[in-house]
Design a protein around this nucleic acid. Structure first.
Lengths: 364, 364
DNA sequence: CTGAAAGCGCTAACAG
DNA sequence: CTGTTAGCGCTTTCAG
């Protein structure tokens, strides 16, 4: 019982149970008929010795580890502000929880680009928020590791194993909301991270502006800026004769910062300046004055990404065929397509795509 | 370059480079002298073939995987309320971030008790918030896997590889704060989870009550209760002639709930009833009326747990000897001991213990 | 400095 | 139904 924890192998179990090692193996896996008597003898011997199968040996032999990797791409997600940490934590927590439910190991993959870092045994890998033409996707593909992404790599529009967010719908709703509140000149402060989040939101903003015959105004604000630098960059853009009466700021911590800058400039929020952000965090939820925010719905993204990964690993040839939970998704809609509110559009070939998750906006 | 991602082995690299496979191995590991010419030939062959060492084969051979496991014990942390999720996410996120910094793989271990679930290759395992006489600790120890815990198993007080929280100091501070605000009858609502959090806070409450010559009043509220059941259980205890003028409720979501129950009973918070919680979440931070809360300081716990784990894996015989970051810790203080504010106590043998992290309270 | 060979512990043919 | 055996891909002696 309280044996000194020496690692006991299948061979010792076989000896003690007086059977061949293959019998022990099969007694556990059930992959071939074993007489009741033998099975019991084996299991008892194993229990007495405290046998525990060596996962590396098993993986080496079978070629599978039963482990899924996770890589979170955004540079500023890990280091950085509490807001970024919150976003990171929410996604990681959701994926971990979902994997736990599925009783499958999830491993945070350390530095896939650094050759000096030890490789990790994974059957597949979830890559969250990839960049355009993402190098990690390239590398994993080269290694032959099946990948599922949370949000698409914007340079790989045809990649079918991506869970997408429906940006056009939600960003349009956000813009319409601001407009209904009286906004006439909306400036978008976008980030420098080249991912779907920045790209799609910008595209949607431009398309909306064109449709509404408004002059778009896009400013770039690096996610890596210090609060002071960000404030300094934003300040001159909030004043002057053509100043905006509403701003959309990608990162929520910068959004909170903008409200302070505005106050310092004598602008009242939201009367003189409405502020909205493209990610929802505690900051945006509790800011005073209030900040309207887009919720990326990490929990749903995670749930679907995990489901998609497991489907892919169990041999699904393409995402659509084996997809089982179209609940919150509009799977029929090809990426980029927009449908009218309340209307479901079905198109040929659409079932070859992974689902699109609905984001939402919280109006404040 | 864009080879069809067939897994290439060390043998093929050896063939292409016209060397023995052991030479290839050593060319990568640098564990024996290799001539410059051969090394280059090997590395080029590897690059051309897209060689990627098989981690399972390596682990099988070396006996180490370079991966650390993570198990989060509290039953209600994963499923359950948003508050629990936040607590879970914060801890998981912090540990993941810290492990990433250390370029070491972190794996969420699925269901260690369930024999049908595939084992996972880990060199060590971090167990967060273990129960008293925790079965997972027992099992891991039996398997000979080095363990570090976040908070101690209350039934294993001598276990040195535990990062502890300084409950006496912070809970006493919390009680003193309530008392200074005028609280005369403080009731503690404790949970049913048998872990350090519940035990230590209760002990401290009882000790404080004895010291202050107050009659302690402890009520038990299972963490698994639905909000409705929790409300129903709490309601009668808030009223009556000997009703408390302050309550400390372990879980913050129940704390928020108590404020609602109190309001429904016509009690004003905090005038008629002060409310404090033993964990800090967005709920407690933003509740109105305000909730004083204890912050478990997950980030620091995580940082220290990871550091301790890596120290243990690199052969540290005991925690104290290899401990390098006593910044926020009062390592000299044996578990349970209290020192006077602003005074550092050093005791013999204290360096054999892992650090004690300071929690804090946020007064609201 | 390099090669040959022995396994790490397990699974999956293939024989009985 | 059970036993024997050949490796999975790698590291590490031990010889040259």
């Amino acid at each position: 019982m309280s044996r000194p924890a020496a690692k006991v192998t299948i061979r010792e179990v076989a000896e003690r149970a007086q059977v061949a090692i293959s019998t022990v193996s099969h007694a556990f896996s059930g992959s071939r008929p074993i007489s009741q008597a033998t099975r019991e003898r084996v299991l008892r011997a194993a229990a007495e010795l405290g046998y525990d199968p060596n996962p590396s040996a098993r993986s080496l032999r079978t070629g599978r580890s039963g482990i899924v990797g996770l890589v979170l791409r955004p540079r500023y997600a890990v280091t950085g502000t509490p807001d970024r940490a919150e976003t990171f934590n929410r996604l990681v927590g959701s994926i971990a929880t979902e994997m736990l439910r599925r009783k499958t190991g999830l491993i945070h993959v350390p530095d896939i680009d650094d050759p000096s870092v030890a490789r990790v045994p994974m059957d597949g890998c979830i890559v969250a928020h990839p960049y355009g033409d993402d190098s990690v996707l390239t590398e994993l593909t080269r290694r032959g590791i099946p990948v599922v992404t949370v949000e698409e790599d914007p340079e790989r529009p045809g990649f079918p194993w991506a869970v997408r967010l429906d940006y056009p719908a939600v960003v349009t709703a956000l813009l319409d909301h601001l407009r209904e509140q009286g906004a006439r000149r909306i400036t978008l402060f976008t980030g420098t991270e080249d991912n779907a989040w920045n790209r799609r939101t910008r595209e949607t903003y431009l398309a909306w502006s064109a449709r509404r015959r408004r002059t778009p105004r896009v400013e770039v604000l690096s996610e890596g800026l210090t609060p002071d630098d960000a404030a300094a960059a934003v300040r001159p853009l909030l004043t002057g004769r053509s100043r905006p009466d509403a701003v959309i700021i990608a990162t929520s911590d910068f959004a909170a910062l903008v409200t302070r800058v505005a106050a310092a400039e004598g602008l009242r929020v939201p009367d003189d300046l409405m502020v909205a952000s493209l990610t929802d965090t505690e900051h945006s939820r509790t800011a005073s004055p209030p900040i309207t925010a887009m919720d990326l719905n990490h929990e749903k993204l995670a749930e679907h990404a995990v489901e998609l990964m497991l489907a892919r690993l169990s041999g699904a040839g393409n995402p659509g065929n084996h997809w089982s939970s179209p609940r919150c998704c509009t799977c029929a809609r090809p990426p980029g397509a927009r449908d009218r509110p309340g209307r479901t559009v079905r198109r040929a070939g659409a079932d070859r795509h992974a689902p699109i998750v609905d984001a939402s906006i919280t109006k404040r």
